[in-house]
């Protein structure tokens, strides 16, 4: 039994692909992984931890955020990790058109995060309201209620775009 598991692991091999670079630095294609890790280390002094709040997403963005953890994108290999507690988080990822029923929980989560903290809007809904816009049920763009440091558009944005966005936010938007 155990033998089958080990054989499958060996057969699968290493699938991780090179990560993208932060948007404005695409010319620096060499040693990407190390550069990103160095950057995260320099800016934050440690790994990057992320707290996600789904504020009315259709769950499409969540599927792509989950995909970031698969071996191809190997998010944790870059030192980036989703955490359960906002108190452990450096970055707040927001998805959805900020449903009114999630606003209080979203703001409490943000308050609970230690400074410096980054807010990144993921997906067309959080970026600009998307197909749902503003209504009795939704506030629309996250920037209507909170200071957003970086936007990652797309419906949903693909894992590489999210990864690139996260890295760009860290590199260029984090207060030093």
């Amino acid at each position: 039994m155990m033998w089958e598991t080990v054989r499958q692991i060996r057969k699968t091999g290493i699938k991780s692909e090179n990560p993208p670079v932060a948007q404005e630095l695409s010319r620096l294609a060499d040693n990407q992984t190390r550069e990103i890790q160095d950057e995260i280390l320099k800016v934050l002094g440690r790994a990057l931890t992320i707290r996600l709040v789904d504020a009315g997403s259709c769950n499409g963005c969540e599927l792509e955020l989950q995909a970031l953890g698969n071996a191809y994108y190997n998010l944790e290999g870059l030192g980036i990790k989703f955490v359960a507690s906002p108190r452990h988080a450096d970055m707040l990822l927001l998805t959805g058109p900020i449903s009114r029923n999630m606003l209080a929980a979203m703001l409490i989560t943000h308050d609970a995060m230690p400074d410096p903290k980054l807010v990144v809007a993921v997906g067309d809904c959080a970026v600009k309201g998307g197909i749902f816009g503003e209504s009795y049920a939704t506030i629309g763009a996250a920037s209507n209620v909170i200071k957003v440091d970086f936007n990652i558009p797309g419906c949903p944005p693909e894992p590489l775009a999210i990864l690139q966005g996260i890295l760009s936010a860290v590199r260029y938007r984090l207060p030093r």
Binding site: G56, S57, G96, P97, S99, M102, A105, S135, Y136, A137
Partner: peptide, 11 residues
């Protein structure tokens, strides 16, 4: 439930 109500029916 209801936290992610987006007003789809009205939209």
């Amino acid at each position: 439930l209801g936290y992610v109500h987006r007003g789809v029916d009205k939209a």
